[in-house]
Amino acid sequence: MRTLFVAASIAMSLFLSSTSFGMGAEDVVKKSQAAFLYPGKDFKARVMMKLINKDGQERIRELTMLRKNFGEPGGDQKYFMYFHQPADVRDMTFLVWKYPRKDSDRWLFIPAIKLVKRIAANDKRSSFVGSDFSYEDVSGRAVEEDNHSLLREEKYEGKDVYVVKSVPKASESVDFGYKLSWIDKGSFIPWKEEYYDKRGSLSKVFTANEVKPVQGFITVMRRTMKNVQSGHRTEVVYSDVKYNQGLSDSLFTERSLKNLPREISR
């Protein structure tokens, strides 16, 4: 009788934990990265970035972005970017080979002097093209680099979400103290992320403003990163989103950097 009672209570507590804390925080973050950064085998989009300062002055960055996955979500990826606007970066191309567990390889092609420049990439928190997004915000941060904990589950603008706190293990390597993420329980898209500085004050806020399925993949079509301390923000709009186009490996090479294939410029 006694053994039965113990067994029943264990079963009960397991059941409770699986409902209230459905999965581990790290699993939530892994699934979120897979949904947000790795959907499809490959991806292509036209990206319009608006960099807006606190006085409302706008600068723009318009580019075509291609991504291809190599292996499972969380694994290696290659990115190719071609800049359309503004004039001082027009026709520049940028290639990233991302390896989650070591520094990415990055190359920038400067058309005016036909120079393929290798970019030192050890600081992933540097601003991407002068925007509020860092390189890491664009291509992701390895799950193992942070300690993740599930703070709570709640509703965010009517959607069921997990709220996850992520604390960098090597705090000296990053410019933030910790991050809170509001991750959709169904799609695992992050609706909101708050970055806190090392003094614990809110510094940057990411929001997914428009999300829709494209070829069955939930896609964040509009997003914003706002620096609440400087008042500067960056709004990003995706268009012409296409998945699984069978992008060839040869697109992600030095040859494409220097001699842009037509399938990219169009």
């Binding site: 030192a120 990439a121 050890n122 600081d123 540097s126 601003s127």
Partner: peptide
């Protein structure tokens, strides 16, 4: 040798 010593400083 090239290295980014801190954010946006190379």
């Amino acid at each position: 040798y090239e290295r980014e010593l801190w954010s946006d400083f190379t």
